[in-house]
């Protein structure tokens, strides 16, 4: 079973629908038993960094979740703010602590270039850096994925970056991968065939 963690933020339905469409047995839950039974964990996220982190940490089952991800090392997929929350620090609405699962900071998309639209809403050609990652199997380099964000993750250790894309003159982290965790800044559940392929791979991932 795949547990999509419900902490009161964002549209979980489309994430659920995408997993069901790929044939997975997925549920939206924050139940302790479900998290313990789950083979895979999904941490979605839409909204402001600080509010997402606070809501997630306030769950009665947060310690169970952290145990399943960090100690049991279940394959875990973060999506959008679900990726960002894994950072050490976030710069949205002041400086806030993240989950600190990966040494990194979440910073605003800013550039001296004129007319760089923020939030970035839309399809961007995305480069694959970790070519041999299981979750990216069968996805060609430079495919389009759908993004909606104003902030992005800067990793201390560049080898944690699995995908990136160019926005103006910025290099934006599109996905991170380390140990049992894969997380995307884009929305695989909104990225049509390429996104569904990534989800299908993730369901089969057994790191």
């Amino acid at each position: 079973m795949i547990a999509i963690v419900d902490y009161g933020m964002g549209n979980l339905k489309s994430v659920l629908n995408a997993f069901l469409y790929c044939g997975a047995n997925a549920v939206i839950t924050n139940d302790k038993n479900d998290l313990e039974k789950a083979t895979h964990i999904i941490i979605p996220g839409v909204g402001a960094f600080e509010k997402c982190v606070t809501n997630l940490k306030q769950l009665d089952t947060f310690s169970t979740l952290e145990y399943q991800v960090k100690v049991e090392k279940k394959p875990t997929l973060g999506i959008c703010v679900g990726l960002q929350m894994m950072a050490t620090l976030g710069h949205e609405n002041g400086l806030n602590n993240g989950l600190n699962w990966l040494e990194s900071e979440v910073v605003k998309i800013e550039s001296d270039e004129d007319n760089l639209k923020v939030p970035n809403i839309g399809w961007n050609e995305t480069s694959i850096i970790q070519n041999d990652h299981f979750v990216l199997k069968g996805i060609k380099n430079a495919q389009d994925f759908y993004y909606v964000h104003s902030y992005y993750m800067k990793c201390k250790n560049e080898s944690d970056i699995a995908m990136n894309y160019k926005y103006g003159n910025l290099e934006i982290t599109a996905a991170i991968a380390f140990q049992n965790i894969f997380a995307t800044q884009f929305h695989p559940e909104k990225s049509q065939d390429n996104g569904l392929k990534l989800i299908d791979n993730f369901i089969k991932w057994n790191p």
């Binding site: 629908n17 909104k190 049509q192």
Partner: peptide, 8 residues
Amino acid sequence: VSEEIFMP
């Protein structure tokens, strides 16, 4: 729609 449509 959202059961079968995977775009924004």
